[in-house]
């Protein structure tokens, strides 16, 4: 049974297909930290994923089912939530670009890498985990890394969250907590259980008050990346 450490949570996984093992390879763990839980993916779990995303093969759905179990554990026990976003790290600070699929968050973080070169690296391009620890928010790489397969097995302190929309002209401003609350709720997994829902909302509330929030309208250009990077980092390049 493979053992993984993802978002600083050590767990064993009982899997059916080989795909998920391959996907999670980089996160295999053979250290001494205690195993927090066993994630057993069953055919029922895979069927449940199929209801949500029917066009995918079972092996892929299994990886989603494992992800859901990890998210569930993190919310219940580790102050952790998944945040559908493209998370990039620069000089030890992480920036999370979020938007509905297809808006261009991966494109924008690619523009940052082109602008900043070796100073920037991807934490995760699609489904990073966010955890609240010792009074600060951190983002973790996970194997669920999006279509460009970009992730690093790492932990970086979050500096800012930025909601992206497409626009002809580039502009950026601080986002209100009201705007960002809805954005975050739409880009995470919402639990059915009321106690878990309250945990989620408490975490989001902390995030809204402790992390810088921005709204960016952008086109695909170096200027767009310059504007968002300079504004959010305070670095004039």
């Amino acid at each position: 049974m493979p053992r993984y450490k993802i978002a600083d949570v050590v767990f064993d996984a009982k899997l059916i297909y080989g795909y998920t093992e391959k996907l999670c390879k980089k996160y295999e763990y053979d250290g001494d930290e205690p195993v927090k839980f066993v994630a057993e993916v069953t055919q029922e779990d895979i069927k449940a994923e199929q209801v949500l995303a029917e066009e995918f093969p079972p092996a892929y759905l299994e990886s989603l089912a494992l992800f859901r179990k990890l998210c569930n554990y993190c919310l219940k026990n580790a102050n952790g939530i998944v945040f559908h976003s493209s998370a990039i790290a620069v000089d030890g600070n992480a920036y999370l670009f979020t938007a509905p699929s297809g808006t261009g968050k991966s494109t924008h973080s690619r523009l940052w890498r082109e602008l900043l070169g070796d100073r920037a690296f991807m934490v995760n391009d699609d489904k990073p985990m966010v955890r609240y620890e010792d009074g600060a928010f951190y983002v973790y790489g996970t194997p669920w890394n999006g279509k460009h397969r970009l992730d690093t097995n790492c932990k970086v302190k979050i500096k800012a969250i930025c909601a992206i929309s497409q626009a002809k002209e580039n502009s950026i401003r601080k986002a209100t907590t009201a705007e960002m609350l809805i954005t975050i709720l739409n880009q995470t997994i919402r639990p059915q259980d009321q106690e878990d829902m309250d945990k989620l909302l408490k975490l989001i509330e902390k995030m809204l008050t402790e992390v810088e929030l921005y709204k960016l309208g952008c086109n695909i250009s170096r200027e767009a990346a310059e504007l968002s990077y300079k504004t959010m980092s305070g670095d004039n390049l």
Binding site: T177, A178, L185, N186, Q192, D193, Q194, M197, L201, T209
Partner: peptide
């Protein structure tokens, strides 16, 4: 109904999630 950072929202929990998945 919950207040989150000064904002009021309503979400569904339990069986109500089947009928309503928004905020």
């Amino acid at each position: 109904l919950r207040e989150v950072a000064g904002n009021y929202i309503v979400v569904a929990v339990g069986n109500a999630v089947k009928d309503f998945n928004g905020v």
